[in-house]
């Protein structure tokens, strides 16, 4: 019997600071055979072990295509993330996954695709953005709206610059509070929604960010006419086991780890009715 609690060992290939408190780590399995089984889909997450400090869940933040390693983007906050931030290239961690469901892709073909990210919420959206862009012929248009508290809180700075100049993708940035050298938009990410000109009846939107941002953005999206099944988000909870056994991530009648982390707004509303 395979043991779903037994992590595979991976080595940190690359450490890339994103902001003052957030860093991306590229991980590769020591046993190359693991990758064949691992192959993840955008939206899925992993449980990362820093042995001695513990285990914590992280979404996969890299492309699901054309690589044999993957990234996680980690804010330094708790015991595990502090230990992870103290690790460098060559250090070993444990990985369990991929876990959870994933973003729909084929199901939303033919639509305008909108992404709305706030802060670190861009991390789980990134694999989906990259996959949608890779298959851009299947979609009517691709728009990425991304906001953070300050310019220093924007993650994937180099890539954002690239996205802003890409043909076939529209990428708009904003910050809540500007500063010296910031010439871009100032305001919450929801303020960028006025830039959306396509027919929302033929669109799907992927939203991720802090709970308060999701709440306001979703309210705006509903007002714009987005359908409840066309607003898709990914939720986070304190997922201990990742396989629906420890019960920590239960919300209403769902396990975030097993039934999610990706949910439609219709599903989220039903969960909120059971457990406001």
């Amino acid at each position: 019997m395979s043991n779903p609690y037994l992590p595979d060992i991976a080595t940190i290939q690359r450490v890339k600071p994103e902001t003052y408190d957030t860093t991306s780590f590229t991980l590769k399995f020591d046993d190359p055979g693991v990758w064949e089984r691992f192959r993840f889909r955008p939206g899925q997450f992993v449980e990362i072990s820093v042995f001695g400090a513990g285990e914590a869940p992280f979404c996969i933040s890299s492309s699901a295509h054309g690589r044999e390693d993957f990234d996680i983007t980690v804010r330094r906050l708790g015991r595990v993330t502090q230990a992870l931030h103290a690790m460098g290239e060559g250090a070993q961690v444990g990985v369990r996954g991929p876990l959870g469901n994933s973003f729909p892709l084929d199901e939303v073909a033919g639509k305008h695709v909108l992404f709305v990210g706030g802060g670190l919420g861009l991390a789980p959206l990134r694999p989906q953005i990259l996959e949608v862009y890779r298959q851009r012929d299947k979609f009517q248009s691709i728009t990425v709206l991304y906001g953070a508290r300050t310019p220093d809180d924007l993650i994937y700075r180099d890539e954002l610059e690239q996205w802003q100049n890409l043909e076939g993708m529209r990428c708009l940035l904003t910050v809540d509070v500007g500063g010296d050298g910031w010439t871009g938009n100032v305001g919450v990410v929801g303020s960028l929604l006025s830039e959306v000109k396509f027919d929302v009846g033929q669109a799907v939107v992927f939203v991720c960010g802090p709970p308060i941002m999701i709440r306001f953005v979703v309210r705006d999206l509903v007002a714009m006419g987005f359908g409840e099944d066309d607003i898709i988000s990914t939720l986070e909870r304190h997922m201990r086991c990742g396989i629906g056994k420890c019960n920590h991530c239960i919300h209403g009648d769902k396990y975030i780890c097993l039934d999610g982390p990706v949910f439609t707004y219709r599903q989220m509303k039903a969960m909120m009715e059971l457990e406001p």
């Binding site: 001695g52 015991r79 993330t81 909870r237 304190h238 420890c246 920590h248």
Partner: peptide
Amino acid sequence: TVTDRLEGDGGVRERHWDACLYNCYAREA
């Protein structure tokens, strides 16, 4: 819940009963 405990030049991962009534149960980092 699950915790790690260091022991010699390694350690053990243990799981313990937890209670959903505790304030810290669902609290995030």
